[in-house]
Design a protein around this nucleic acid. Structure first.
Lengths: 339, 339
DNA sequence: CTGAAAGCGCTAACAT
DNA sequence: ATGTTAGCGCTTTCAG
């Protein structure tokens, strides 16, 4: 709690000028005599003045902060979010740009309906100037709610429906095609995939892209088992796949964590990766490098994407009433040892 | 950006009462005629009124939000933080209590000197009522800076030095003693430990406690290799330990992630856990259950501790000028299969 | 129980 | 280039 500190008035008195002048100096507005600037500056440090954000935003209607909202439903949401390198990369990417622009990043977690409306209220009351939301489920109502509340919003991943929000996204289907092409080129034909819940649009697209590419190559039987983006779920999916299709020679997982789990299981079963079964992941996250063997994976430039999203938001905030715009990134195959 | 919405004044006009009355209704202050309350309430929904937080805190000097600050130094901080289940548990625990108390939790990340002062400024300007900081390094200046800035602060883990901040902590030494006792009881004598940087006080304490307990039992030669709290670093530490001390029969790791890495390596080397080498972790995080074999570990009730910290903060905020208080939790051994 | 009125600390016209 | 002044929207005495 900031106890009642010195105000502009105090500084003004101390410096022998008017409030307005001090305000100008504080806000770096030109048209202030350099000497007076000096005097004011000294008075500021002498008094230990800090601008009161509430008073300031009451008149400017801005806070200088933007919210980075992590949204999804489920138990122990934070525990899951904080166990997936993906979110860390998003945060890192967004933070970098925001810091550089002098914007204070504020993380908000919306893990339940209650939390969601708290977040909407909070932002609706003007706690931040805009929101960058990272949402996992297709049917996440949050982006729509925010837009409806008049909050400038940009989403990571194309938003479900068509709220008027800018977004950044990856061409997930193209990425999956890359994976399929690689597996095929390596001579693998008995392919399967570890997908993820359809509620995650990206997962759905990866699955579609993979199937499509294989179909185009004449491979139509493609076993699919769904995981939940975690290594453990990848393990289990792999176990089941192997049980039902012992002759598999290639697997595509919708993210690196599941690919890692799959590799773990395969090796425990005494199978060689990629000798017996080739494995391709998705994301090129830290898990890809840590996996044994290192994963061949589809690179998603998460940090760049997050930075782009943050930039979109900041620019949309600056240029009043501009159209929300968006940008789609192209994936890239990173060949390591697993396939 | 919340565009200029309806104000108290608008609602008052609509309801045919004064601003003051509307304010009383909004804030649930008693002494308002039930009928009038109804009228006002209707007017509120009809106009779609939302209180303006800036105006409100300008007079109340409160925001109804508290910051949860993740602090530490280092590259790609967010990426690391978001890869360790520990933080997720802290966030979950704190969120639970805060939500229940109707306090809006706001996450702040302080990964560099610049970020730290941005955070101090932000909070100093009254963006939140208090801060709960989770700090990793002994020499983290943040808690001190916050206290100096007059911000009510509570830390997770005893704060370095002696800032006037409340805190919650775990008796880490006792936890390490538990681990040592268990290993000893299992007949292991050729023990080693995977520690972590001394800059993390908890790690230091775990190391001290472990050595102490072993010394008391007459085991004085205890090889130590330091990791960095990650599974990968645990792997590497285990590799080195095994190379230098091939006859090891028990290992204590300062957290579960490193223990997990160690188990992984041991199994890859064809050694049995706990047959050849018993492994004990620390935290009882999700990694403990996912590990092969499931980890015997020292339970740290992170969620409870975080909730307690949040409670401390909220209460300190409520009761003006109370002494910052603190609470220390006792660890507990959870026996699974790894030792 | 309700209304009138005085600010909270700051920015932004508008004057000078 | 600097000062004056009018609010921003809300809570909170203080009267009534």
């Amino acid at each position: 709690m900031a106890k009642r500190g010195p105000t502009l008035e105090d500084v003004a008195r101390e410096a022998g000028v008017s409030r307005a002048t001090v305000s100008r100096v504080v806000n770096g507005v030109r048209n202030v005599d350099p000497e007076i600037q000096e005097v004011v500056r000294r008075a500021i440090t002498r008094t230990g003045y800090t601008p009161n954000q509430a008073a300031r935003s009451l008149v400017t209607r801005r806070t200088g902060a933007v919210a980075l909202v992590l949204s999804a439903v489920g138990e122990a949401f934070a525990a899951r979010v904080f166990a997936d390198p993906f979110f860390g990369r998003v945060v890192d990417g967004a933070l970098g740009l925001l810091r550089e622009r002098g914007v204070q990043p504020v993380l908000l977690v919306a893990e339940s309906a209650q939390a969601r409306s708290q977040v909407v209220d909070y932002l609706g009351q003007g706690a931040a100037d805009g929101a960058l939301v990272v949402s996992l489920d297709v049917d996440d109502p949050l982006p729509g709610m925010l837009v409806a509340a008049g909050i400038t919003t940009v989403t990571f991943g194309r938003p479900p429906g068509d709220p008027r929000a800018g977004f950044v996204d990856l061409d997930n289907e193209a990425g999956a095609r890359l994976a399929a092409g690689h597996l095929l080129a390596r001579g693998r034909r008995r392919l399967a995939t570890i997908a993820a819940p359809d509620s995650a649009p990206a997962a759905r697209q990866r699955l579609d892209g993979f199937r499509e590419a294989l179909a185009a190559a004449g491979v139509t039987e493609v076993p699919v088992v769904k995981g939940r983006f975690t290594a453990e779920s990848g393990r289990r999916a792999m176990a089941r796949l192997l049980r039902e299709h012992p002759r598999l020679d290639g697997v595509f997982a919708a993210n690196d964590l599941m690919a890692q789990g799959a590799c773990q299981y395969l090796r425990e079963q005494g199978l060689s990766v990629p000798g017996d079964v080739a494995v391709v992941g998705f994301d090129d996250s830290s898990a890809a490098g840590e996996c044994r063997p290192p994963l061949t994976t589809v690179r998603q430039p998460v940090e760049e994407m997050a930075a782009a999203a943050a930039r979109l938001l900041v620019e949309q905030l600056r240029g009043t009433a501009e159209q929300p715009s968006s940008v789609v990134f192209e994936p890239e195959l990173v060949v390591r040892e697993s396939a």
